[in-house]
């Protein structure tokens, strides 16, 4: 019954930034199988409502992590949850990152802001399968150093041979890293356009700009996967809210090849 939430318990709630919390949830009884990187759940805050949230980690024992940013009533309620609290989950829904298509090729992850959350399981998966993929590069743009997600894990990724580059819009005192838009990082990495798969998530403006920059560097549109956002109420393709032209993003997305979305994203108010 995919319209009814299944009870999960928050087993850990950790503040990532001032307004982002990672909720580790574990099924109370029956688990929801089938989560893969890029797919999402409808997460229910009791009595408040439901929001679509991509998984930011898929653990053993049916544990899932959702990284939530407090931007509204439901996400605010979710961010106030503590270990032991109850949530409801429906899912998994949608199409995730096509990692099979990336097999054997370099993987270029480009994340803006909380767009890193749905990409984290991709990085973990690629690092966990050495030999399956070529070089892994993770380019992250964020607002300020204190808004950077998963700081400790990034160091781990670097030790595991991923190239991880971070750039911020607003450096504070003490920031010794890059300043600028995430696309500036594309200049710094030696991309092999004929053997690279790019996975992009962030605000839609950032996605469009990044995809254009990747095309300009010779990546074909079908090797650029983007994760898009629209209003979602049901997750099952029935409520009609998440339409982007011919696509129902909860069903045909949220991850879609840029070759299918390029012209759609160019139409205002589509």
């Amino acid at each position: 019954m995919t319209t009814v939430p299944v009870p999960y318990r928050v087993t850990a709630a950790s503040a990532e930034t001032a307004d982002c919390v990672s909720l580790e949830v574990t099924p109370v009884g029956q688990a929801l199988p089938g989560f893969t990187p890029g797919r999402f759940a409808m997460v229910y805050a009791f009595g408040v409502g439901e929001v679509p949230i991509s998984v930011s980690a898929i653990g053993g024992g049916h544990r899932l992590v959702h990284t939530v940013r407090a931007i509204g009533a439901v996400t605010g309620a979710l961010c106030r949850l503590r270990a032991g609290d109850a949530v409801g989950l429906r899912g998994p829904y949608g199409v995730g990152w096509d990692l099979d298509a990336a097999a054997g090729s370099d993987v270029l992850v480009v994340a803006g802001g909380i767009g890193l959350a749905p990409l984290r399981p991709v990085v973990r998966h690629v690092l966990g399968h050495p030999g399956h993929y070529g070089r892994l590069r993770v380019l992250i743009g964020t607002r300020a150093p204190e808004d950077l997600l998963y700081r400790e894990e990034l160091a781990h990724w670097r030790r595991a041979a991923a190239q991880v580059e971070v750039t911020v819009d607003r450096p504070g005192p003490g920031w010794r890293g890059s300043v600028g838009l995430v696309t500036t990082l594309l200049d710094r990495v030696d991309t092999r356009p004929d053997r690279t798969t790019a996975l992009v998530c962030g605000p839609e403006v950032m996605i469009r700009h990044t995809a254009r920059a990747l095309l300009a560097r010779g990546l074909p549109a079908h090797r650029i996967q983007v994760s898009l956002e629209r209003n979602m109420r049901c997750g099952t393709g029935h409520c009609g809210h998440c339409q982007l032209g011919p696509l129902l993003l909860c069903r045909d997305g949220p991850v879609v090849g840029y070759h299918r979305t390029r012209s759609l994203l160019a139409v205002r108010e589509l």
Binding site: D19, V51, P52, I53, S54, V68, R69, I71, T75, G112, G113, I114, G115, A117, P118, G141, T142, R143, D147, D169, G180, L181, C201, G202, P203, E204, V205, M206, H209, S227, L228, E229, P254
Partner: peptide
């Protein structure tokens, strides 16, 4: 110009 938009601002449109 894009940075002028403050894309990752708290009120911004950000995938969750």
């Amino acid at each position: 110009r894009l940075r002028l938009l403050d894309l990752y601002a708290p009120h911004g449109s950000v995938p969750s």
